[in-house]
Design a protein around this nucleic acid. Structure first.
Lengths: 130, 130
DNA sequence: CCTCACGTTGACGTCAAGGGCAAGTCTGCC
DNA sequence: GGCAGACTTGCCCTTGACGTCAACGTGAGG
């Protein structure tokens, strides 16, 4: 498969794919004339990379973790990195949940306007009658 | 309170606070000579802004939502925006969860190496005996 | 009055993940 | 063998949330 095929099947631009290669995230064989040739596992690989990007991992972090994903082995160092990133993700999820709760509260209030929280709704005071 | 106090109490840099003002996220009175003066609610406000940033909202989006947060009222448009962002956050959380699961899997495997998944662990095939 | 930390604006730098363009090359198909 | 479309590298551009530096004003204590 050539780069355009991978782009089509993953929804990732060819520019991005070349960028991944540049960053050491994705490797490809080459034809005699220099064109990139991919095997099917590349699709899965690209999707994994996208997921990790979406989770806020930096390319430099991903490049350190991919070998572990491939071999199933992780040095102490790599293991620590894995755990740090996992914990960071967990924290991010908590942050997202809090932010979503804030938005939900505003949505609720704007849908059911009651005198108490009309003027200035504060997280704490809005719940008390005072 | 002056800008340094807010910075200290929120952990947000003075540069960031001025940026927030520039973006219309945070307002401040001024002394006769032009120095910013904040009231205490500014602290809460800054923390809210940080939360929304952490949730991936852009400053332009936040600037549209803050009035709703203050008044508890939202136009149809604002309400739609609120819902879009809430849904986006929900999606992000799902993405994070998937990525975390991937990392957890790598951690598990590297901790309990077994022959099956040593060579190349694939999401699907790793579960089947092959 | 001096000092010195703190404040001001303005402008430019950074960093990451690509976008986009140019100029040239390759491939597949008629 | 010719053409269109896909591919190559190289390079600069973009966006957002600030960092950083410069050059200068402010204000409270000694």
């Amino acid at each position: 498969m050539r780069i355009g095929d991978i782009a089509e099947q993953t929804g990732v631009s060819t520019r991005a794919l070349r960028y991944y290669e540049e960053q050491g995230l994705l490797s490809a064989e080459r034809t005699a004339r220099g064109q990139r040739v991919y095997e099917e596992p590349a699709i899965e690989r690209v999707q994994l990379i996208q997921q990790l990007f979406a989770a806020g991992l930096a390319s430099r972090t991903i490049v350190e973790l991919l070998p572990c994903v491939d071999t199933g082995e992780a040095s102490e160092e790599a293991l620590a990195l894995l755990r740090r990133e996992r914990d960071r993700i967990t924290e991010s999820m908590a942050e997202l949940e809090k932010a979503r709760a804030q938005l939900d509260r505003v949505i609720e209030i704007s849908l059911h306007p009651t005198p108490e929280h009309c003027p200035a709704l504060r997280t704490e005071t809005a719940l008390r009658p005072a």
